[in-house]
Simulated assay, not measured.
Amino acid sequence: MTGPRRYQDVRAVTLTAPPDVVWRAVLDQVEVLGQPSWYVRLIGCRDSQPAGPRPLAAGSVVPGFRVATADPPSRLVLDGVHRFSVYTLTFRLVPTDAGTRLEAHTDATFPGALGALYRLLVIESRIHKLATRTIVTRIRRQGQLRIGA
């Protein structure tokens, strides 16, 4: 018998901004994850209401995610659970000669028949790739704007 299929993905971009500027942009974008809030409730996310310390630190909650690890300005690990999936979203910020390489790592499993159906709807349809690309693009824009301010 095999377990749930695992999904892994990485989105990466290099910004000319330094890691501390990119870190602030990551935190700002993570704060708006879990929108729309009705969707978080519909799929039964373990964490559905913002809670915990701000700026985000281990134990903080944004809808759909709990902060497992916060190592400013290099790594933010978010984990989540809902009816159809168990998942982790990790942001890694790596200093480079050009600025900062931002990586968004997704790792998820989709247990059971309903999990397999949800995977089909969200992963195989490429909705998740689009959503992650949008998050990374927003972080890039915000980080570049801050460096220009």
Results as ranks from 00 to 15, higher is better:
R5V: 12
L42D: 01
V32R: 15
Q144H: 11
A113Q: 06
R126Q: 13
P111I: 08
D97P: 03
T69A: 14
V26M: 06
G99N: 06
D97S: 14
S60W: 01
D47F: 14
Y87S: 13
P4M: 07
G148T: 12
T16W: 01
S85L: 11
L27W: 03
D71R: 13
T109N: 05
F65M: 10
A58Y: 03
V30A: 08
R92S: 14
I127G: 02
H82E: 09
T132S: 13
L78S: 04
R11A: 11
G148I: 00
G80Q: 06
D79N: 14
R6N: 05
S125Q: 10
A98W: 05
T90D: 12
Q8I: 07
D20V: 12
D71F: 00
V62I: 13
F110N: 05
Y87M: 03
L93R: 09
L130F: 12
L145S: 13
G59E: 08
I139R: 03
G80I: 01
A131P: 00
V94Y: 01
G59N: 08
A17Q: 02
Y118M: 04
F65S: 05
E103K: 04
G3K: 11
T96H: 09
T100P: 01
R133S: 15
A108W: 01
A108F: 01
A58I: 03
I135G: 02
A25V: 01
T14I: 10
T96G: 07
L120K: 12
R92P: 00
P18L: 08
G59S: 08
R46T: 12
P18Y: 07
Q142W: 00
A12Q: 13
L93F: 10
P18T: 07
T88M: 10
E31P: 00
V32Q: 12
T2Y: 09
L117Y: 12
Q142A: 15
R133C: 04
V22Y: 09
A116P: 03
L121K: 09
V67F: 10
F65L: 13
L42G: 05
P95Q: 10
A25I: 04
L117N: 04
G34W: 07
P50K: 09
A70D: 07
Y118T: 07
S125W: 09
L102R: 08
V86R: 15
Q8R: 15
G64V: 04
T16P: 15
R140C: 00
E124H: 14
E103T: 11
I135F: 11
Y118L: 08
L89W: 15
G64I: 05
R11G: 03
T106C: 10
F91W: 13
L27F: 02
L114K: 11
A116T: 12
R140I: 01
T109L: 10
T132M: 14
R24W: 00
T88H: 13
V122A: 12
G143M: 03
E31F: 02
R75V: 12
S37P: 06
D97W: 05
V26F: 06
Q35C: 02
A116Y: 06
T137C: 02
P4Y: 07
V26Y: 09
V94C: 03
R54F: 06
K129W: 09
V32T: 15
A68K: 14
V13T: 14
T137F: 11
L93K: 07
L15F: 05
V122P: 02
E124D: 15
R133F: 04
G80H: 01
Q142D: 15
L93G: 08
